[in-house]
Structure formats: structure tokens, C-alpha cells
Simulated assay, not measured.
Amino acid sequence: MKNILSMLLLLSVIIGCKSTAGKNSEVKGSSSEYGTQEDQMKYYFTATGNEPFWGLKMGREGIEFSSVISGKEKIVFPASEAIKAMDANIKMYKVSNKKSSATITIQQLECQNSTSGVISPYKVSVEIKNNSELVSTKLDGCGKYNTDYRLHDIWVLEELNGFKVFITDFQKELPRIEINAAENSFMGFGGCNAISGSIFYEKGLLRFSKVVSTLMACGPGNKEDQFVKALQNTTTYSIENNRLTLSNPSAKLLVFRKVD
């Protein structure tokens, strides 16, 4: 009887381990047409195209192009800064290595994958060639920016327009925001009312838009309006020492502390 109980206990442990391993594998291996979660954390922009299939991963350490095209199965270029259009959200990257060169154009224009039907916010074109070739291969596809995963957290306000804040500056408690990086959205508390909205993210750019709030009347001296205005004026950010700093070219606007 004791041996039977021991066998049953061992079997339950084995099944539990397999179940946990399966869940971990599912999280790590989960992917979309733009690659795994690990890819989307490492690269700030990813793109794909069909007929023939190709993929593009752009990161701060380099740019990786892959395809089913003979001689262009995998090409890695050094990281490069964008050439920006003056009158539209269009960025061009001219990259090269010892064997190949490419021109990558990213345009903020709704784009539909010709196979999956998935709608993406950016149209991407790639002209790529080996240096021994006279003519470039031209490819079109769709892409998206991968919102910085470090933003995905709950943040409580510490500074507003360069000054430390206190609970007495607001109705009940300090403002906070909870950012959902996967859905490009946020929700939180403005110091008097509940707030929510969308975030727009590109490399080096962060905007809070479509901000809505409940309509509770705020007490005199409440700085919620200043907080929301600063949030809407944000264009850039930095994360260091568990602090999220939101700024624009004119000033540092908000500093938050990570709380979970």
C-alpha cells in the first residue's frame, strides 16, 4: 500500500512538472506573424511580406533581413539612423555591409497582409541587393513598432513640472498610470478622476492620446488638470532606477515611480 501511494505521489509530481513546463514554453514560444515575444522585446520594429516571404527585424544593435530568396536567406546590417521626411511620417534607412546593401522605407499607412488579412499601421518597402548584382530586389510588406516592454507596469507620480508632488496636491491620493504595452493603452487615476486612453509609440517617441476621464468635481487646488496636460504634452521618455520620466523638447514634465 505504501509503495502504491509513493508511485501515485511521484506520478502527480511528474504531471505537474510537465504542465508547468508546457505553460512556460507557451509563454516563451508564443508568437505572431512578427515573431516571438522575445523578438518583439529585442527589436523596436518588425515587418513581414509575402510572395516571396521575407522578414525584417530592426534593433538598436543591428538590422536583420531574412527571406526565401536564394542568396538573401539572412543578411545582417549595422544599426542605422533614419532619414525622415519633412511633411509626412516616412522614414528611410540606407544600410550596407561588405556583401549587400538595402534601402528600407517605413510609412505610417494602414497595410493589410496579403495572406493573413491582418491590418498593420505601417507600410514597408525594401530594396535589397548583393553588391555583385546590378539590380535590386524590390519587396513590399507591412510592419509595426514594438512598444518598449519596460513601460508595461504601474507607475505612481513623484514629480510634476519639475516639482515634487504630495497627496495634499490632489483629492485623495497621488496620480498613477498603468500602461499596457501590448495593447498600446493606459488607465489610472488623475488625482481626482479615473483616466484612460491610448499611447502612440515609435522608436524614441511616446505620446498619450485620446485621454478621457470621469466627471467628478475636483476640490480647489487639485492639480489633476496640470497632470493630464503634462501627460498629453509628452513626446519622449526614459526609464532608469525604477523611474519613468516623461518629457518633451521644452522640459521634463513628469516623473513616476514603479510600484509593482
Rank of each mutant, 00 (worst) to 15 (best):
C142A: 04
C142P: 04
C142Q: 05
G143M: 02
G143E: 07
G143R: 04
K144V: 13
Y145A: 06
N146Y: 07
T147D: 12
T147W: 10
T147I: 12
D148H: 07
Y149F: 15
Y149R: 10
L151G: 07
L151N: 06
L151R: 01
H152K: 12
H152F: 11
H152E: 12
D153P: 03
D153S: 14
I154G: 03
W155K: 06
W155Y: 09
W155A: 01
V156I: 15
V156C: 10
L157N: 02
E159Y: 14
L160H: 03
N161A: 09
N161Y: 04
G162M: 14
G162K: 08
G162H: 11
K164F: 06
K164V: 09
V165L: 00
F166Y: 13
F166N: 14
I167L: 03
I167G: 01
T168E: 11
T168S: 13
D169Q: 04
D169A: 05
D169E: 05
Q171F: 04
Q171K: 12
Q171P: 02
K172Y: 12
E173A: 13
L174P: 03
P175W: 00
R176S: 10
I177F: 08
E178N: 08
N180A: 15
A182T: 15
N184W: 13
N184K: 14
S185L: 07
F186G: 09
F186S: 12
M187T: 08
G188I: 01
G188P: 03
F189N: 08
G190M: 00
G190K: 00
G191H: 00
G191R: 00
C192P: 01
N193K: 11
N193W: 06
N193T: 10
A194R: 15
I195P: 00
I195S: 01
I195V: 15
I195C: 04
I195A: 04
G197A: 09
G197T: 10
G197M: 09
G197R: 08
S198R: 15
S198D: 15
I199D: 07
K203M: 09
G204L: 15
G204W: 11
L205F: 15
L205Y: 12
L206H: 07
L206M: 14
R207Y: 12
R207T: 14
R207A: 13
R207F: 11
F208T: 08
K210M: 08
K210P: 01
V212K: 11
V212W: 02
S213D: 02
T214R: 10
T214H: 06
T214Y: 05
L215W: 04
L215R: 12
M216S: 10
A217F: 10
G219P: 02
P220S: 11
P220F: 06
P220C: 05
G221A: 05
G221K: 09
N222R: 04
K223Q: 11
K223P: 00
E224C: 02
E224H: 01
Q226F: 11
Q226A: 13
Q226I: 05
F227Y: 05
F227N: 00
F227V: 00
V228F: 01
K229A: 14
K229C: 03
L231V: 06
Q232T: 15
Q232A: 14
T234G: 09
T235F: 11
T235Y: 10
T236I: 08
T236M: 12
S238M: 06
I239S: 08
I239N: 11
E240P: 05
E240A: 13
N241G: 03
R243H: 07
R243P: 04
R243I: 02
